[in-house]
Design a binder for these strands. Sequence first.
DNA 1: CAAAAAATACTTAATATCAGGTAGCAGAAA
DNA 2: TTTCTGCTACCTGATATTAAGTATTTTTTG
Lengths: 226, 226
Amino acid sequence: MAICVYLVASQQAMIKLLIIDDHPLVTDGIRTMLKDVAYLEIAGTARTAKAAIAFLRDCPPIDVILMDINLPDMDGIRLCELIRDTHKEVKILGLTYINEAAIITQLIKKGANGYLIKDMEREELIHAIDQVMDGTLYLSKAANEKVLRQLREHDIPGKTIPVITRREKEILQLLYKGHTSQEIAGQLYLSVYTVDTHRRNLLQKFNVHNTQALLHVTREMGLLDA
Amino acid sequence: MAICVYLVASQQAMIKLLIIDDHPLVTDGIRTMLKDVAYLEIAGTARTAKAAIAFLRDCPPIDVILMDINLPDMDGIRLCELIRDTHKEVKILGLTYINEAAIITQLIKKGANGYLIKDMEREELIHAIDQVMDGTLYLSKAANEKVLRQLREHDIPGKTIPVITRREKEILQLLYKGHTSQEIAGQLYLSVYTVDTHRRNLLQKFNVHNTQALLHVTREMGLLDA
DNA sequence: CAAAAAATACTTAATATCAGGTAGCAGAAA
DNA sequence: TTTCTGCTACCTGATATTAAGTATTTTTTG
């Protein structure tokens, strides 16, 4: 009887993980990092947002989700929002290559419990999982000063990502590749005036005053394809 | 006696690998992918170019190097060149996140035996190692059409990456973050004229005619930190 | 040390971008 | 139908960038 209770307690203490990442390299890396941690179990992996949602719907409950921000079929912010809507109790840890305050604050606002940069050490990963299970927010070491300052000082400045139109995105992409207004006008069969109007609207929407800054913020927000 | 010969043959057939990457996640991921392959042995790992060079100098011979292109202390192209100078026999496989013809042709020109994108599958990794051991060039599936076309059509168009100075790199980085000449001049305590001179020299070196194009090509060449 | 490379600062002129307007037109939504 | 949004196009003036020079000082390097 005592043994039985012990086993149940042990099973309850086991933390079940779901890894969402389209890179097998990352999934395998996490697997190796966690293989000697007795109380952690990788209950499943998903390579797309779609697969992840299906897993969460059909399979046994998950405690912590390790989620790549750049998935092929959906951006991490949206996926985070979706999961939070249907699974209020699950802890979500975002994984990114970059370390940008803009995207991170956005993620936290959508209900993530923390984020890690992919150059993390094994210890940091385990610590992060422990911490979110405790109900604490975990922010990757490297950036937390920057992010915390943002979250604190401006209360929540995590600028909402502006809505841009199809045409604007198209022009943004061409600017990113180094084209001038003239070249873009030529490629899209538009007047230079029109291209300039779109550029002007983009600058206004993102509240910047030159193209490089525009490209910088849109890159941080994950709006650029490359 | 027969057994002895067999053992020796077995040892000779063992392929020794060195992984050079500053992300433990990647190193661990590769370790997992290869752990069940009997004839592959991870003889060492290095997190910096410096450590890798030391390892190659001091430790037993390596057959294949898996090398990240973006190392903290040196760019992959240069490291590849250095290793090729002192170790003519070793096979070098480059690892990148991106898939840019410019950087890949450059890498091949410097003596790499192939490259892989980090979204590879386990099978692709093993296949790549086998292939370079055979003396064949291995190019990651996703891009080889593009790269092969470049290598073929233009014979070798892989533009050599220009040498840029410390100051130029510094200014390049600030431009990347969206700063204007005025702002950069203010930050670095320089005249705007000076900043403009550096900008002009950068445009000339990379043979482009505006800042966005400059940032685009330097990004492709892996010269930008972000 | 001497030569070479890098960094600094300035001039002039052409071109591009940025900021502020206005305005017509098509298609979707209310 | 009316209204709203997105796309188009043009104008003017201010500011920034680009191109092509020259030239002095500092730093690196052989």
